[in-house]
Design a protein around this nucleic acid. Sequence first.
DNA 1: TTTATTTGTGCATTCGTATGCCTAGCTTGG
DNA 2: CCAAGCTAGGCATACGAATGCACAAATAAA
Lengths: 348, 348
Amino acid sequence: MSKAMSTHPQARQQTSSARALSRDVAVAAGVSQSTVSRALRDDPRISSATRERVRLAAQQLGYVPNSVARNLRERRSRVVGVMVEDIDNAFYQELLADMHQELLLAGYAFTLIVDPLHLRSDVARLTHLLDASLDGLIVTTATLGSDAPATLQRRGVPMVLSVRSVPNLQVDIVESDNVAAGQLAARHLVSLGHQDVAAVMGPEVTSTTQDRIVGAKQVFGHSLLPHRVLHGPYSHESGHAHCRRLLQSEQPPTAIMAANDVLAIGVMDAARQMGYSIPEDVSVIGFDDIQMASWHSFRLTTVRQDTKSIAVQSARRLIERIEDPNSPITHDKFPVSLTMRSTTAPPK
Amino acid sequence: MSKAMSTHPQARQQTSSARALSRDVAVAAGVSQSTVSRALRDDPRISSATRERVRLAAQQLGYVPNSVARNLRERRSRVVGVMVEDIDNAFYQELLADMHQELLLAGYAFTLIVDPLHLRSDVARLTHLLDASLDGLIVTTATLGSDAPATLQRRGVPMVLSVRSVPNLQVDIVESDNVAAGQLAARHLVSLGHQDVAAVMGPEVTSTTQDRIVGAKQVFGHSLLPHRVLHGPYSHESGHAHCRRLLQSEQPPTAIMAANDVLAIGVMDAARQMGYSIPEDVSVIGFDDIQMASWHSFRLTTVRQDTKSIAVQSARRLIERIEDPNSPITHDKFPVSLTMRSTTAPPK
DNA sequence: TTTATTTGTGCATTCGTATGCCTAGCTTGG
DNA sequence: CCAAGCTAGGCATACGAATGCACAAATAAA
């Protein structure tokens, strides 16, 4: 076990040595610090003989460049912030996993900025994050009212709006075609013969929810009654609660359209708990097609959004914007598709 | 829209001004740069009059200290790495959310290091991360064979092993009492009268799985037959596949103990898909008590682990270790408890 | 052989903040 | 009234790597 551990900090040096610096490598290789820096960065001016010598010395000393020093010198950090509303939501988890992967490939790390709607990061708080330790932001939490994106952009923060958007802003956007998604879901329900549909949506201030409603209304027209469009957070609990209320009402809908799969699953759980069978008694359709949607317990019919492409493209766009602030603004809109499973059927 | 944006970088200064530096504040406040630094850090030597003057100037200029420069100077980054195996797993999501919260409160950010079992980060790769941009590591991916923790520790990397542990290592550990957890699950099944139990576990190299099996065996004795202990990844899919095989075998078990809730849900989905009712035909018990376990579709009986405390304590321990490398090594073991829901019953 | 050119390194400075040390001016005690 | 002490702040340097510029050596051109 612990053999009388020395309490002198210096004593550690004998066991593991303090981190080697470029000047240590320089001494070991018999060159200057600048040559070490150049050799390891493959500067063509360094002869291959020297380069090898330096490489060897660096390896023997276990030299790894100090990224903080490099970042200071190069005035960037290779870290980007990813703002999400809710780390508990399966959709964001899948999104984050893919973004992480893509950023890593490009040599960037990321920092999560969790920003629930009720905590709305003000620009002041963000500014702190943006001191210099963040090269840019992927924002998945944009809300329609907020002026934060505009402010940040004025400050010259490289940024892309991902998943959700805000209109009339000169900023890169990567999202799904949510209007088409709303249409797709609605057409599917209409084609099955549903006339009395309710919508359990997310917060009104999110473009995803708005666009999906717009799409649905284009198909349903006035048969989608305003009081049948319910808003709340994107959570299982919210779906559950809204569904209870809907099914307890005088005339329960024959189908429920949820703003995303997590809500849809909440809806299903509530319906089943109340003794309803899905899809016999009530049809349910979601959006996103998260992994869970395919589990046997749910087998949820849903409008699939290409989460992976959105994640990858958001990361790429941000990096492009960071590396060339003057490149033209882009707006990517990815197509969606219907994944039919077992939660929709004609009404009784 | 974009009014003929100037391409001269200098031109940006007129609109948003390049970031203000401490020396800009110094000029504005009529003091030296050092005084600015001291004033903003509440150094007692600065008079309150001067302090206010500096604060005002800083605020007017929108000055935010450059954290990269500060980190270089202070030789730390206030960023810690959190190694997880699998970001898709609900348990880790809950853990991460809580760690994030706790680290944030202490002024630390974190970087995710996703490290699937099949990708086993070698120390070389880790070393890169640890150049200087990471102050420490929370490792949730320790496996019993790996020598990575020992190596890192020898290098003096502040580290805590979280959730899972490795024996005989002088390192901080924060975990649940998994042996007790195994006992708890087993006792519950035994008390219901189950004699033929199967275990759908995680990878053999994880201490969680090992400890839970140890605990279970202490209760079951030899009635937990070796060929009834199945290993695989901690995924819904794995639980699903193992369950199929178990129920198709000549003598299906009357109860299945899964190494965590995600596996347990996979097990339930497979059983139901094959026409079995839970708990009438087969009992299922999990570990962790993730949020999903309480959803109506599952109502999973499970051994609850205090994920939040583990997350919070891991974060705190790491920070303690970073700030005082000589503090005594600790080993926290949190109690577990049984959450009874509707997936266990006496065998038929 | 001398001058021009290329090639390979080193020197010195820079990034922006924090801090050890020094000093001018004021206070206090003898 | 002067020595000692205290205050409030400035000067200069360090953190560690990257890089513009200078320059020596080696090669090519004249």
